[in-house]
Write a protein that binds this DNA or RNA. Structure first.
Length: 517
DNA sequence: TTGTGTTTTATTGCCTCC
DNA sequence: GGAGGCAATAAAACACAA
């Protein structure tokens, strides 16, 4: 009796020790999580289960990750608010204005007005309708320091704190984007020290966000072209007119004047033309970045789905509905084109086409997603484990991670592509991996064994699989929809922001036009 | 190579809501 | 009371400078 108990204790100890071992999620997992998080900060159980099954994590890990992710957002939010309270009055005032915001910067359920600004933003971008009240809140909440902070990585060049270096040379990421572009559409890796020399050195999460969000932001900028006021209201949203003399100075600088975006009538307005001459953005945007294609696709893909429900409105009661509408009908992994496909296509020989991979370093990685336990069908992420061509990708290759010599010249596209197609990063987060790839170049060398973790509860897995099978028969929707539906810009040199799916610009134009009317 | 700092992950306890 | 979430904490993994 006691012996068995002791044995069990020992086993538990071992089990705990094994489980307590901190593991690092693969880039694909992190990307998937990030992408999912962008749409669903509070995923339902089904979503978690689905996601867990898809990226080979436990639901607990998913929950934990989301928890920490929200916490991360919150902390960044807070730190940013503390550090940049002079940036805008919006945030601080909002926080004290009765908008209930939970400790993670997220919105507690039950108050429909308190929609997560990011979610609002995304939904707005994706064409979701919001009541006027929501838009009002959205407008204000858009001043959320987090959002502003996030945009700092991409489109802050009109910020009051904007560094002149950026205004002169353009958004660092945009610069990267454009600089990475080559004639044949492939992108070359920009050396991190370029950004670093510019004083721009996103770290950690920002690296990831820069990777994940900046393209999206840039894509929007490109789509809207000149009608984008970077520190202004949300696109297509009207502000109430400011009272006379609201600002001391005369707005001789049209940049700071609110611009109604998307109104074709203003497209040729001489008044706006001054704004249109604002530097760099267009220049940057004129350079097509194939990297954006995925994000463009993302935008369009999301926009096509106009049946998103408010996630936080009655999270539980609309659980299924929400799930079905937003998870099945839309791409729950909006970045899957850019993340998971990395793995999918990188195994093939067409890695060049997905330039998003260029800044991603990988790890044999998906070993946890072993082919033996993976479905042969393309998962929602589009990876096809059974594909022989991709097997090398999915195997750990003797548990070696590959690390290039530090001083490897990064400007070699071939190297980069190589890194893309065969890249096997470390198990560090994407941010670190990206940075590492930037630093390492395309060549990889064994570094050390990748800690294989098989902590997926088989029962859980079975349960999830079963549930997924029953509830989500369209698992491959991502692979099918996003690939088939989303047009790829085949002419990277010509493809411009205006090559974006017409649905977006049209919808956007229609919306804003109607609002002006 | 090593030390230090940062980021990420896992665990646990408490709180709130249903 | 259970479930979900947040916050605190520890520890691993990693980056980076010396």
């Amino acid at each position: 009796m006691e012996d068995s108990a002791e044995v069990q204790t020992e086993e538990n100890k071992v089990f705990l020790d094994v489980n307590k071992k901190r593991t690092v999620k693969t880039p694909a997992q992190v990307m998937a999580l990030e992408n999912f998080y962008k749409e669903h900060r509070f995923p339902s159980d089904e979503m978690k289960a689905q996601l867990a099954a898809q990226i080979r994590l436990t639901e607990k890990q998913i929950s934990s990750w989301f928890c920490h992710r929200r916490l991360k957002d919150k902390r960044r939010d807070e730190s940013y608010a503390n550090g940049r309270q002079d940036h805008s009055s919006g945030v601080i005032q909002d926080r004290g204005s009765g908008l209930r915001q939970d400790s993670c910067g997220s919105i507690k359920q039950g108050d429909y007005r308190n929609v997560d600004p990011r979610e609002v933003e995304s939904r707005r971008i994706y064409g979701h309708d919001f009541p006027a009240a929501d838009l009002t809140y959205e407008r204000r909440s858009h001043q959320n320091p987090y959002n502003a902070h996030m945009e700092d990585t991409s489109s802050e060049n009109s910020s009051s704190l904007h560094d002149q270096r950026f205004s002169e040379s353009g958004d660092p990421y945009d610069m990267q984007i454009s600089a990475n572009l080559t004639q044949n559409g492939a992108i070359t890796q920009i050396k991190p020290r370029i950004a670093k020399s510019m004083g721009y050195k996103p770290s950690g999460y920002l690296k990831v966000k820069g990777e994940l969000e900046n393209p999206a932001i840039t894509a929007v900028k490109r789509q809207l072209g000149r009608h984008y006021q970077e520190d202004g209201p949300l696109l297509g949203i009207e502000f109430d007119p400011l009272p006379p003399g609201a600002f001391e100075f005369h707005s001789s600088n049209p940049v700071n004047e609110p611009i109604y975006v998307g109104d074709p009538r203003q497209d040729h307005s001489p008044d706006i033309s001054g704004v249109l001459k604002q530097p760099n953005l267009n220049i940057i945007n004129e350079v097509h970045n194939p990297k954006l294609s995925s994000q463009d696709s993302y935008v369009e893909d999301a926009k096509l789905n106009t049946e998103h429900g408010s996630e936080r409105q009655d999270r539980k009661s609309h659980h299924q509905l929400k799930y079905k509408s937003s998870f099945l009908c839309s791409n729950p992994f909006p970045g899957q084109n850019s993340s998971i496909n990395i793995y999918e296509s990188s195994a093939g020989k067409t890695a060049v086409s997905d330039c998003k991979r260029s800044r991603m370093s990988y790890k044999p990685a998906v070993e946890r997603m072993g082919s033996d336990s993976f479905s042969n069908q393309p998962g929602p992420y589009g990876w096809k484990i059974a594909n022989e061509q991709e097997k090398p990708w999915l195997h750990d290759d003797d548990n070696h991670t590959y690390k290039a010599p530090k001083n490897e010249n990064l400007s070699k596209t071939s190297n980069l592509i190589h890194g893309c197609s065969e890249s096997q990063g470390t198990e560090r987060g994407p941010s670190a991996r990206m940075a590492k790839l930037e630093k390492l170049g395309g060549e990889w060398k064994p570094k050390r064994g990748y800690p294989v973790r098989e902590n997926i509860d088989p029962t859980n897995e079975l349960k999830v699989a079963k549930r997924v099978k029953v509830e989500f028969p369209q698992q491959n929707f991502v692979a099918n929809a996003s690939h088939s539906r989303l047009p790829l810009l085949t002419n990277p040199t010509k493809g411009s922001s205006m090559d974006v799916p017409s649905s977006f610009s049209e919808d956007e134009t229609a919306e804003t036009s109607s609002s002006l009317d």
